[in-house]
Nucleic acid binder design. Structure first.
Lengths: 125, 125
DNA sequence: GTCGTTGCAAAGCGTTTGCAGCCTA
DNA sequence: TAGGCTGCAAACGCTTTGCAACGAC
């Protein structure tokens, strides 16, 4: 049976507070503000547990380490900042993709990744 | 100045002969057929060199190791078959994406990955 | 002969696992 | 009290780097 430890609570709150996909390093940093001696192995184990139980969704982007976000959000894409390397959500949905699908292929899903500068980094440049 | 070694030649030919994206392990295996003692570090270094000079293009897909293919293709997206796990090219380009970009963000590039069944697997199902 | 290149081994880096002790239920 | 959970450190797999020897030009 699953237990509610201080560590698991801190990790959950890290996702709830930021509202964007987080990598393990970001989770460790955020959750350590609450639980000082938190170890990276605990972050990995809890992320896996939370993903297995459906509380988290894995966000895999090309050439990047896996990130995770709370499951059950509206349809959205992801925007990856080339400067700070953070990932943000980009709500919305593009139209028909059928003209892109080769003949005979059956389309089930799609993932769109936007690259550029986030508002923070764009303002600094 | 760049030199034409047996190792580099074998690695180039591995790509030319197969005509599809290859990972480092596949390159090592194929090129070792020509150059027995070929080391994995040499494969990595040559792939980087060939990519830097524009002879290779990096193909990165979510949750997969990087692959490389000979440069010079038209603009295209990638279609990944969930059944046979092969990756295909999907020529074309979607229209405006500006309505997806959050306020203050600056869009530089985008990538679209389609998931589903390729013609071959769809026909079998 | 120069100096780019190679193979080996060691070092990184992100992730997983073994283990003894801790703590939630 | 039982056994899930934690932190530490070592193990992992993949990639990069240091280094002395090699070989293309």
């Amino acid at each position: 049976m699953e237990r509610n430890t201080r560590q698991r609570g801190a990790i959950r709150r890290a996702f709830q507070r930021t509202g964007r996909p987080l990598g393990t390093g970001e989770v460790l940093e955020l959750a350590r503000a609450e639980v000082g001696g938190l170890g990276i192995a605990t972050v990995y184990r809890n992320i896996r547990t939370l993903a297995d139980e459906g509380w988290l969704t894995v966000v895999e982007l090309p050439g990047a380490v896996a990130r995770y976000e709370i499951h059950g959000k509206e349809h959205h894409y992801h925007f990856r900042c080339r400067q700070c390397d953070r990932v943000f959500e980009a709500p919305g949905c593009i139209g028909s993709l059928t003209e892109l699908v080769p003949p005979g292929f059956s389309l089930e899903d799609h993932e769109l990744v936007l690259y550029g500068r986030c508002a923070e980094c764009a303002a600094l440049a």
